[in-house]
Write a protein that binds this DNA or RNA. Structure first.
Lengths: 292, 292
DNA sequence: GGAGGCCGATACCGCGCAGGTATGGGTGCA
DNA sequence: TGCACCCATACCTGCGCGGTATCGGCCTCC
C-alpha cells in the first residue's frame, strides 16, 4: 500500500468531455457533430455511454433536441473548468519547453483600458535587473480571465466586479469610483452627482451595449460598443453616454462632461495570476505591481 | 462562425495524464506500469507519444529511471490540477444526480480540530428553515483542501497558513495566536511567553512529527502525531510538547501548561468552497458561518 | 388524418490504436 | 566481462471509435 489505494476511477476522457460540452452548447446532436467534424451516430453513442458510466441522465431528449438535466448542468459547468485546466496544462507545458531558449511572460489586459497602470507596471518591471520579455496581449473586454484560465496568458489585469477573479491569486492595484461621461452641453452635465438609474434612463442618451463573451450584442437602443474612442466621439455628438472608472478622465478631450455616479459599484483593478505559478516573469511582474 | 473557431486543440486525454503523473511520481516506468495495472512497454510508448504531441521532452532517461525536465515539472503541477478538476466534475455530477432524491452537502474538517466552531456552525445552519442534510467527513490533517479540489467534499473548514486555499472562495471565521502546550512541571511552563525557535529546541521535549500528505512521517526525534488526545497524553508524560492554536485550550485537562508562542504564525480558520458552487447547502452553510 | 420532415437511436462494419509478449540496447556494478 | 536493471522497439491481437444506412418517435402542415 503506497499512496494510491483509493481510486474512485477517473473514467471520463477529455474527448468525451468535449463531445458533451458541444452537445450541451448546441442542444442538438447533429449540429454538435458537425461542429466536431464527425457524424451524428457516434456522438449519440458517446453521450449515451457517458451517461451510463456516470449513472446519470445528462440530457432529456425532446423532439426539438437535447436539454440539460440538473446533473447535466453540473457537468457542463465543472467540465468547462476541467477542460480549461487541461488546455492550460498543455499550453504551459509547451511554453515552458519553448522558454528554455528565452524566458518570456504573456500579460493580457483589456484593450484601451488601464493604459496608465500598464505603462507604469511595464516600466517598473523592465527596470528590474532580471526582467524577462513581456508579451502584452490586448483582448476584448471580459476575455482576460478566460485567457488566464486556459493558459493563453500568464498574468492578467482584471477589473472587479466585472471580471471573475475566482480561482486566481490577485493583488489589488487601484480602487476607483465610476463617473458618467456625457456631452458637454447636456442638461445633466452641470449636476454634482447622479445615480446609476438616472444615468441609465437619461432621455435620448441610451447607454451603449457591451458585447457578450461570444462577440454578440444584446438588443437595445444604445450603440454597440466596439472602440472606446469611437464611442467617446458618439458621446460628443450627443448620441450616447458612458459610465467609466474615473481614471478614464485622463484620456478625455473637449466636448465632454463628467458627473460622478454615486451608487455605481467601485471598480478595483487587480493583477491576477494562476495559483502556484512558477514563472519568474509572473513573480517579477507581481512584485513590480505591488510597488507601484 | 459561431463561438468556436479558435481551437488550439486539446489533444491530451485524461488516460495519458494519469499515465504521465504515475511515471512522474514513481520516476520509474516499470513501477508506474505496475501501479496502473498494465505492462511496461505500452506505458513507455504512451509517454513517448505524449512527448511527441506536446513537442517537449518531459523526462530525461537515465539508467536509474526517469527524471522530470522543466516542461515535465510544469505538466505534473498543472496536470494534477486538471485531473482533480475532472475528478471533481465527475463526482459532483454523480452527486447532483443522487441528490435529486434528497439534497445534502459534504463538509470536511480536520479530525479533532475546530470542534467548537463546527458545532456552532452546524447548529446555526440546522436552525435554518430550508437546511439540507450535512454529511461531516473528518479527514487527516492537510487532506481537506484536496477533498474540496477533487469533489469529495462541497465545503471545508481550512486553516491558513497550513492549508492551501488558493482557487477557493473563502470566508474567514476566526484568527488565533498559537500557544505551546507542555507538561505542567516543566521549567519553561512558568514563562510568560516563548519563541518558536525556543519551543522547537526545548531539551528533552522534541515536537511531534506531522504526517505528510501520503501518510508517511518525516525522520526526527519526536513522536509521530496520529491522535491528538494521545499526543496530549504524551505531553503529560513529559515526552513531547505541542504548538497549537489557542482555541485548543478549551479541550485541555490537568497536567498541562500553556505558554504563548510569540512569533508563530497566526492561524486563520476559514470556510472554503469551490468557486461557482450552485449547491444550496453550500450557500446555506456559508451564510450560517458568516453570522457566527 | 396521413405524408413528410426533423429529431435521436440502433444496426452493422472496418480500421486504428491501446495493450499484450518477446526482445533489444545501453549503462552501472560486482 | 558478465549480469542486473533500466527503457525502447518489434510484432501481434482485440476492442472500441467512427463511418454509412436505417429505424422509430414526434410535430407540422396540407
Amino acid at each position: 500500500m503506497g499512496a494510491g489505494q483509493r481510486r474512485t476511477l477517473v473514467v471520463v476522457e477529455t474527448r468525451e468531455l468535449r463531445y458533451f460540452v458541444a452537445v450541451a452548447e448546441e442542444s442538438h446532436v447533429g449540429r454538435a457533430a458537425e461542429r466536431l467534424g464527425m457524424a451524428q451516430p457516434p456522438l449519440s453513442r458517446a453521450i449515451a455511454a457517458l451517461e451510463r458510466r456516470l449513472g446519470a441522465a445528462l440530457f432529456t431528449r425532446t423532439p426539438q433536441g437535447m436539454v440539460l438535466t440538473g446533473p447535466g448542468e453540473t457537468l457542463l459547468r465543472e467540465g468547462r473548468v476541467a477542460l480549461a485546466a487541461i488546455e492550460a496544462a498543455e499550453r504551459r507545458t509547451r511554453r515552458t519547453a519553448a522558454s528554455a531558449t528565452r524566458a518570456s511572460v504573456v500579460l493580457t489586459a483589456k484593450a484601451g483600458a488601464s493604459s496608465e497602470i500598464m505603462a507604469k507596471l511595464l516600466d517598473a518591471y523592465a527596470a528590474e535587473p532580471d526582467a524577462v520579455d513581456v508579451e502584452v496581449v490586448l483582448s476584448p473586454p471580459g476575455h482576460q480571465a478566460l485567457m488566464l484560465r486556459d493558459g493563453r496568458a500568464d498574468v492578467a489585469i482584471l477589473h472587479r466586479p466585472f471580471d471573475d477573479t475566482s480561482g486566481f491569486d490577485v493583488d489589488e492595484l487601484v480602487v476607483e469610483d465610476q463617473v458618467l461621461i456625457l456631452p458637454a452641453g447636456h442638461p445633466a452635465s452641470t449636476r454634482e452627482s447622479i445615480t446609476f438609474d438616472e444615468a441609465r434612463t437619461l432621455p435620448d442618451l441610451p447607454l451603449p451595449r457591451w458585447p457578450h463573451l461570444d462577440g454578440t450584442y444584446p438588443d437595445g437602443p444604445g450603440p454597440e460598443l466596439r472602440d472606446l474612442t469611437q464611442v467617446l466621439q458618439l458621446v460628443r455628438l450627443g448620441r450616447t453616454a458612458l459610465v467609466l472608472p474615473e481614471s478614464a478622465r485622463a484620456n478625455l478631450r473637449d466636448g465632454l462632461a463628467v458627473v460622478p455616479v454615486l451608487d455605481a459599484p467601485r471598480v478595483t483593478t487587480v493583477i491576477a495570476w494562476p495559483p502556484h505559478s512558477t514563472s519568474v516573469g509572473v513573480a517579477g511582474l507581481v512584485r513590480a505591481a505591488s510597488r507601484l
